[in-house]
């Protein structure tokens, strides 16, 4: 780039930097927009009237030709669908509370089970620790289908099938949060603990008073991540819950066919809201947690 006459090197450098920055910003912005596009589609689609939606999607059916063209702002916005959904469709709420229940139970359970376990892995040495941890990691990575049948049988034996416990219990003992939290527990300096120990603190105290607060971020990030995970559970409920009235919302949405695309979108948006809320609030923790997880290699 040629320096304009009268500009000194630093100014050039600055301009360069600014341009670079501008470019970067542009690129990043574009990426962001691209990534957020589907969400926007959803949002706008949810208020598109049924007829218009049908019109738009017509090319997708064998009858239509041409392309699906997306209009961002619908011609005839239809908020009535929201009203319908929220105020006149009790079935939706049954499912909603199912999701809430499942997610809540799982999260609670996970906190109770995974947090101490991660603490144990992080701070203590014990027999077979490495091996056990490796096992945990593997279990985390194994797709659900691998153990699906055997889990089914175990649950059946206990009579949990067709109740929410069938979904909750295995998820509670998922090893993923252990993994996440392990990372964040690792960041705590041992010296701190040692000091506390020397002060006469018991292990429980160490855990409760020192470990937990320090790893708060990590815990929250785990919670957020897991919330998102649980809110979207599909495979387990599909396999273990036969009774439709026990289904979570995440299972219901795919059932809605494309002919009710508008309704599907509306329902999706409503389903989205809690996730977004949690995400919104937990964002910082999420980032924090992820960083924590990420730093210590």
């Amino acid at each position: 780039m040629q320096a304009a006459p009268g500009m000194d090197g630093e100014a050039v450098e600055k301009m360069r930097r600014r341009m670079k920055r501008g470019m970067a910003v542009v690129v990043l912005a574009a990426l962001a927009v691209l990534l957020c596009l589907p969400v926007a589609m959803l949002l706008f689609g949810s208020v598109t009237g049924d007829y218009e939606m049908w019109e738009r999607l017509l090319p997708m059916t064998p009858a239509g030709n041409g392309y699906v063209r997306w209009r961002w702002i619908p011609e005839f916005p239809d908020f009535s669908r929201y009203a319908n959904l929220l105020f006149a469709t009790p079935q939706f709420f049954v499912l909603f509370w199912n999701s809430v229940k499942i997610t809540g139970l799982i999260l609670a359970g996970q906190l109770l089970a995974a947090v101490p376990a991660a603490w144990a892995f992080a701070r203590y040495d014990f027999w077979m620790k490495k091996a056990l941890f490796a096992v945990y990691v593997i279990l985390m990575l194994l797709p659900f289908q691998v153990t699906m049948l055997s889990q089914y049988l175990v649950l059946d034996r206990f009579g949990f099938l067709d109740t929410h416990w069938a979904v909750v219990l295995p998820a509670v003992f998922s090893t993923f949060p252990v993994f996440l939290l392990y990372r964040s527990f690792l960041t705590i300096p041992e010296s701190l603990l040692e000091a506390a120990r020397m002060d006469g603190a018991g292990e429980g105290y160490l855990f409760w008073r020192i470990g937990l607060p320090l790893a708060e971020g990590g815990i929250w990030s785990a919670v957020v991540l897991n919330f998102l995970e649980c809110w979207n559970l599909i495979e387990q409920p599909l396999a273990f819950l036969k009774e439709q009235s026990l289904w979570p919302l995440s299972l219901y949405l795919p059932q809605i066919g494309l002919e009710r695309a508008g309704f599907a979108m509306t329902a999706s948006v409503v389903t989205l809201v809690p996730a977004l809320l949690v995400f919104g609030f937990g964002k910082e923790y999420l980032e924090q947690g992820i960083s924590a997880a990420g730093t210590k290699g």
Binding site: T89, P90, F93
Partner: peptide, 13 residues
Amino acid sequence: FMMVCTMISKSVY
């Protein structure tokens, strides 16, 4: 809010 909606929706439905 969801709770309220639930009840409303039930009756409306």
